[in-house]
Amino acid sequence: MCGRFALIAKSDLLREFLDVADLDDPPPRYNIAPTQPILVVVAGEKRAPGSNLPERRAILVRWGFLPGWVKDPRDFPLLINARAETAVGKASFRAAMRHRRILVPASGFFEWRRPAEKGAKSQAYWIRPRHGEIVAFAGLMETWSSPDGSEVDTGAILTTAANGDIAHIHNRMPIVVRREDFSRWLDCRTQEPRDVADLMTPVEEGFFEAVPVSDRVNKVANMGPEILEPVAEETPQEMPGGAGAPDGSGQGPGGSDEGPGQLSLF
Rank of each mutant, 00 (worst) to 15 (best):
A161E: 11
F182A: 14
A210S: 15
P225K: 04
T159D: 08
V196H: 02
A156F: 05
P230M: 04
P147S: 09
T201C: 00
T190P: 10
A162S: 15
F208K: 14
P193L: 00
M173E: 05
I227C: 06
N163A: 11
R216V: 10
V213N: 08
N171Q: 04
N171Y: 10
D181I: 00
K219M: 15
D148N: 11
L199T: 00
L186H: 09
V213G: 05
E226W: 14
T190Y: 10
V213P: 05
A221L: 03
I157V: 09
A161S: 13
M173L: 15
M173T: 06
E204T: 10
T201N: 05
W185E: 15
E180H: 14
V220C: 11
V211P: 00
I157R: 02
H170Y: 09
H168Y: 01
M200G: 00
P225Y: 11
A210V: 08
R189G: 13
T159M: 02
R178T: 08
V211Q: 08
P225F: 11
P230A: 01
W185K: 12
V176H: 03
D153M: 07
V213K: 02
E204F: 07
W144P: 01
N163D: 13
A162Y: 01
E226Y: 15
D215F: 15
D148R: 06
E205Q: 01
N163R: 01
A167K: 07
S150K: 15
E209T: 10
S150D: 13
P193T: 02
L199A: 06
T160A: 15
L199H: 04
H168C: 01
G224T: 03
P193H: 12
P225L: 07
E229R: 02
V231L: 06
E229I: 02
E192L: 07
S214Y: 08
S214F: 12
D195C: 01
R184H: 05
I157K: 12
F182I: 05
D165W: 04
V220D: 10
R189K: 12
A156G: 07
T201D: 00
A161L: 15
T154C: 13
D187G: 13
M223E: 14
T201H: 14
P202F: 07
A221D: 09
G155A: 03
R216S: 14
W185I: 03
D198I: 05
G224W: 00
E180R: 13
E204S: 12
I166D: 09
T159N: 08
A156H: 01
V176S: 06
V231G: 14
E192P: 00
V177N: 03
A161C: 14
D198Y: 02
A167F: 01
I157Q: 11
I227V: 06
P212G: 15
V220W: 05
H168S: 09
E205G: 13
M200L: 12
D195Y: 01
F207I: 07
N218S: 13
T159A: 05
S214R: 10
P147F: 08
T159V: 03
M223Q: 11
N163M: 03
R172N: 04
E151K: 07
S214L: 15
P225S: 15
W144R: 00
N163H: 08
A210N: 03
W185M: 13
V213H: 05
E209D: 03
T160D: 09
P212R: 13
V231K: 12
S214N: 11
P147E: 12
D195F: 00
A197H: 00
C188L: 03
V203F: 12
R184K: 14
Q191L: 00
